[in-house]
Amino acid sequence: MTQKKPLIVLFQCQYCLASSLDQYWVEQELPENVKRVKVPCSGRIDPLYILNAIQGGADGIMVCGCMPEKCHYKEGNLHARRTLNEFRNFLNTLGYPQERFVFHWMNIDERGVIQPLLASFEERLKRSKDRPRLANRMLNQENG
């Protein structure tokens, strides 16, 4: 059996990734196993979104927001950091390994970092033996 590619949900604020090339890549050339959810600000990311993604069977979650102090909405990203850090602790209780949820601050002068970032995240997910106990169960139940 060929190992299938891990499914990754990428939550992204609409402002990070300053360079238009990266922007184009995210919008048009994203690999099939990655789903981008565009939000106005990382502060808009409801933990419920992430829970839903996990329930739906996502193997990894990546959140991209602007650097602290570079938030286009003043402090939306700081709010996101508070909430999502709290939420990450909660993931353990759910039985979803914490390292499958990553948070990345994008600096506006970084270029070409999103691609290697996603690739290495994918690698880590593939190698990880720590399978989420929760994943797929719901989906299989529904389908079965």
């Binding site: 506006i108 002068d109 070409g112």
Partner: peptide, 8 residues
Amino acid sequence: SLITEDPQ
């Protein structure tokens, strides 16, 4: 306002 570098 900004200069960015292609890391490769």
